[in-house]
Design a protein around this nucleic acid. Structure first.
Lengths: 238, 238
DNA sequence: TGATGTGAACCCATTCACAGCC
DNA sequence: GGCTGTGAATGGGTTCACATCA
């Protein structure tokens, strides 16, 4: 029952314990904090301390970590390096993930050169572009390939994660190409929401959208401070 | 009771109807779709159709829109341009929001030049940097100012939204400076989670973090396909 | 008839509170 | 005594299903 049994089990179809999405999102945060602690030669940490560092509360931290297994010691806390290892394993960061970048423009090149990718085990397997004049040039230590070769590249290099770095008007077709080529997860930098089949995982990195949400919160904040606001736009227009 | 009454009401402290956070996040998505529809001369839309375009379901769309008021027509649907107007108003996009960008490096300059900002009413009031050699150069049509002038700039230009575009190691101090200068919302591009007072709204645009989440989902997907996986790392290490 | 608007039911995430163990 | 691990309670978000109205 406990994951720390002594035998090697082989899991087959769908036997992975599913961790709630909300908890998965916080794991990289804990990971970063534990890395910093480890660099400072800190070996033990309690859920209380970790909660402060992560801006969460202790109960949530304990619940999140309990999804990984029972790796803490009652009355003491968690071993930093062991917890680090367990989170990395759960997130799949002990593996190397080949990614393909679609778009060799400013953003695509910047991402290709971004050291944080390789640091975290994400290897730029290829950069592709539809512009023939860009094919052959070098971006991020990788020669730019033509987008027509995408299926071949995905197959031969075992790529399962694609990064979209093209202007908004081409983003949907880039996404469709990635899906057809066999990619299962997409990170989208274009300022657009993509239509994708449900089985494709997608994460958005969309500044325009985020700013609009901040705009709403700013408005609420200003209202709360007591700034007078007209509540009926109808009559203002009329 | 209905927001479409005929008199002009003046709301004072905290009278804004609070829309659930989850719904606020979808409003910019609807906005983008309605804009496209409007450009295609489409004047009416039903919750069913909008749901398909947004990748949501009809009930959720109706509930989301109902938070704005009762702007639909039973048996018919919603008027595209009126809905557009209402969403923009609710999000505060009918106002002009001055923003300050902290960091005049590659990312800061790219953001300053990004047309999507001004298109959406976000005006780059200033770009600041701590490097004196960068002060005076031009980024995004705005002269780069020294970070020491931040409080003055925020005050004089009425800035309430800050954008952090500095390396991770400087992000926390940049955030602290913004808060002390009086900014209320922050968009963070640095690959780090910031510690901020609860009253500050923050949105993260963090590729490293998003990729780690995709990595987890890829792992789940591969497990589901029946790839054999060792479930007990303990014994593998030993 | 056909689509909105919305209470009620459901489901997931967070928080509480305490049993269990070091 | 102190801290983890976790059932139970709470709260928010989504979905259902239908009353309501053009």
């Amino acid at each position: 029952m406990n994951a720390r049994s002594n035998s090697v089990e082989v899991m087959t179809t769908a036997s992975r314990r599913r961790i709630p999405e909300a908890a998965v999102i916080r794991l990289p945060l804990y990971l970063r904090i534990l890395n910093d602690l480890s660099a400072d030669n800190c070996t033990q940490i309690s859920s209380d301390q970790l909660a402060v560092l992560a801006g969460q509360n202790a109960a949530k931290v304990r619940k999140d970590l309990s999804y990984l297994g029972s790796y803490g010691t009652r009355g003491v806390g968690y071993d930093v390096s062991y917890l680090l290892y367990q989170i990395q394993r759960e997130l799949g960061l002990n593996k190397s993930w080949p990614v393909v970048i679609v778009g060799a423009g400013n953003l695509g090149q910047a991402l290709g050169n971004y050291g944080g990718l390789s640091e975290r085990g994400f290897v730029v397997a290829a950069v592709v572009d539809s512009d023939p004049s860009k094919v052959g040039s070098v971006a991020g230590g990788v020669r730019v390939s033509h987008v027509d070769d995408l299926p071949l590249i995905v197959q031969s290099k075992g790529v399962s994660i694609g990064i979209i770095a093209v202007p908004a008007q081409y983003a949907q077709s880039a996404a469709d190409l990635l899906v057809r080529a066999g990619v299962g997860s997409i990170l989208n930098f274009a300022p657009i929401i993509l239509n994708l089949p449900a089985e494709i995982h997608i994460r958005k990195v969309d500044m325009a959208l985020e700013l609009q949400i901040l705009s709403y919160h700013e408005q609420c904040r200003m209202d709360a401070r007591g700034v007078a606001v007209v509540s009926d736009p109808e009559s203002v227009i009329a």
